[in-house]
């Protein structure tokens, strides 16, 4: 297998996670990592070039693919710069919060003829992939209802909420992509109802912490997403696809399958704590898929258009909640 040389932009939590995964991956070599704020004393291990300037990665002719794991406002700039330099791009979601900007970026990527994959890792989760496979195999028949439960284990700090773009673009965006993935259909209309039930500071920051979003799909199916910023028992991630022939359902995953029965009740351990634990396998699988597409010259399974659509749905949801009415999703 021909080795692909990779550079990473951003050495925060997700950047480190991806880089560590790359270290264990065959056919990939991490050459350099750039981050203006990172302290590179303890990490990465020796042999990797580090620097504060993105040009370390972007201007290196040897680097064939770039992972963009920097803060959201830099995603579009870095994607365009990397593409223009002829590098394939893996970009964390969202590409940008402005659809016009995303469209411009996608044009740049198209013109450069490089591959772009967006970090909707949940599509690569073995459990949710199996649900999608059941849909493809026709096990559920025509899809009637999709139900997604997506609850974080703890509410983020208010400073994070303030710069997150709001719950729909920050959190529900994964669920919008999951509905598109599971159904293979597009979202036509959105209705969102939200509430501040966990932390009044989130409300003061102009956001909500609890939301129920209804989606009308192009194939006629209905979808509902239930979000909470805080489920005290852990990361609650469940999906269900219901149709004319039955349903496919995925429950939460736990670290073990032990059942403790006592006079007080029958107890299992709580779900895996958060996304790093729950979606560990998917983070590896999404990068493996990205590099396989580069090698085989194929379109990545989650491309720029998927990145754009989820943002368009998120904006429609935010508008729906603000105006308290169903909102049509803008065409891509």
């Amino acid at each position: 297998m021909k080795t692909i040389t990779v550079g990473v932009l951003g050495a925060g939590r997700i950047g480190r996670l991806h880089t560590e995964n790359l270290f264990r991956m065959s056919g990939v070599r991490v050459k350099s990592i750039a981050d203006p704020y990172a302290d590179f004393d303890a990490w990465p291990p020796p042999g990797i070039e580090t620097g504060v300037d993105p040009s370390l990665v972007l201007d290196d002719p040897e680097i064939q693919a770039v992972l963009i794991c920097s803060p959201t406002p830099t995603h579009a700039d870095f994607t365009e710069a990397a593409a223009t330099a002829g590098k394939h791009v893996f970009c964390e979601k969202p590409i940008d919060l402005d659809p016009e900007r995303i469209r411009c970026t996608l044009e740049v990527v198209d013109a450069a003829g490089v591959r772009l994959q967006v970090g909707f890792n949940r599509r690569f989760d073995p459990t949710f992939s199996r649900v999608r496979q059941a849909v493809i195999d026709g096990d559920v028949g025509d899809i009637h209802i999709v139900k997604i439960t997506s609850r974080d284990p703890e509410a983020p700090p208010v400073e994070y909420v303030q710069s997150s773009g709001g719950i729909f673009l920050d959190m529900t965006i994964h669920d919008f992509d999951m509905v598109r993935f599971l159904t293979g259909s597009e979202v036509e209309e959105v209705h969102a109802m939200g509430a501040v039930l966990i932390d009044p500071a989130i409300g003061e920051a102009g956001d909500v912490d609890t939301a129920v979003t209804t989606l009308k799909m192009a194939n006629g199916a209905l979808a509902v997403i239930e979000n909470s910023r805080q489920a005290v028992y852990g990361y609650d991630q469940r999906v269900e696809v219901f149709g004319s022939k039955g349903s496919a359902e995925a429950g939460n995953e736990t670290a073990n399958r032990v059942i403790l029965s006592s006079a007080d009740g029958v107890r299992a351990d709580t779900p895996l704590y958060f996304f790093l634990e729950r979606y560990q396998a998917s983070f590896v699988a999404e990068l493996e898929a990205f590099f396989a597409c580069i090698r085989d010259d194929l379109e990545p399974p989650v491309g720029g258009r998927d990145g754009l659509m989820s943002v368009l749905v998120g904006l429609a949801a935010a508008k729906s909640m603000a105006e308290n009415r169903p909102v049509k999703v803008e065409a891509s």
């Binding site: 209802i145 039930l197 509902v224 239930e226 022939k245 349903s247």
Partner: peptide, 14 residues
């Protein structure tokens, strides 16, 4: 202040 959601179908084959 709570939210509620109902999903209903006239036919679940199972």
């Amino acid at each position: 202040g709570a939210l509620a959601v109902i999903d209903a179908s006239r036919q679940a084959v199972y």
